[in-house]
Simulated assay, not measured.
Amino acid sequence: MTGIIGIVCVFVMVFGGYLAAGGKMGIIMKALPFEMTMIGGAAVGAFLIANSMSEVKHTLKDVGKVFKGPKWKTEDYRDLLCLLFELIRLAKQNAVAVEEHIEGPETSSIFTKYPKILADNEAVGLICDTMRAASMNYDDPHQVEEVLEKRMEANAHHALHSSHALQTVADGLPALGIVAAVLGVIKTMGSIDQPPEVLGKLIGGALVGTFLGVFLAYGLVGPFAARVKTVVEEDVHFYRLIREVLVTNLHNHATNICIEVGRQNTPTHIRPSFADVEEALKDVKSAA
Rank of each mutant, 00 (worst) to 15 (best):
V147R: 10
E55L: 12
E149D: 13
V182R: 06
V66L: 15
D171W: 08
C82S: 14
L81I: 06
Q143M: 11
K113R: 15
D79E: 12
K113M: 08
T168Y: 11
D76G: 10
S135T: 13
F85N: 00
N121E: 09
T59W: 01
A154K: 15
I117T: 05
G104K: 15
Y114A: 03
S135K: 15
S162G: 10
E75D: 15
T59V: 07
K187E: 08
N155L: 14
L81Q: 03
F85Q: 00
L176S: 04
T59F: 02
A170D: 00
D79N: 13
V185F: 08
A159E: 11
K187Y: 09
F111R: 01
E145W: 04
C128F: 05
L126W: 01
T188W: 07
E106M: 12
W72M: 06
L126P: 00
L173Q: 03
H158Y: 12
H58W: 13
A156N: 14
I186K: 07
W72H: 06
E86G: 05
H164R: 14
L80V: 07
M53G: 09
W72K: 05
S54T: 14
P141K: 11
G64Q: 13
A180G: 05
N121A: 10
E146C: 09
K92R: 14
T107F: 13
F67N: 11
S163I: 05
V179R: 00
E75S: 14
A175E: 07
L87G: 00
A91F: 05
V169A: 03
E122Y: 12
A119M: 09
T107P: 06
D120M: 05
L176W: 04
S52D: 10
P141W: 09
K61S: 13
K57R: 15
V98K: 03
A165F: 00
F85H: 00
I178L: 11
D140A: 14
D79K: 12
L83D: 04
D120Q: 07
D62E: 10
G104M: 10
K61N: 12
L173W: 03
E75I: 13
E99D: 11
H101W: 03
K68P: 04
A180R: 03
G69V: 08
Q143L: 10
A123G: 07
A181D: 04
V56S: 07
T130L: 05
L80R: 02
D140L: 12
L126R: 01
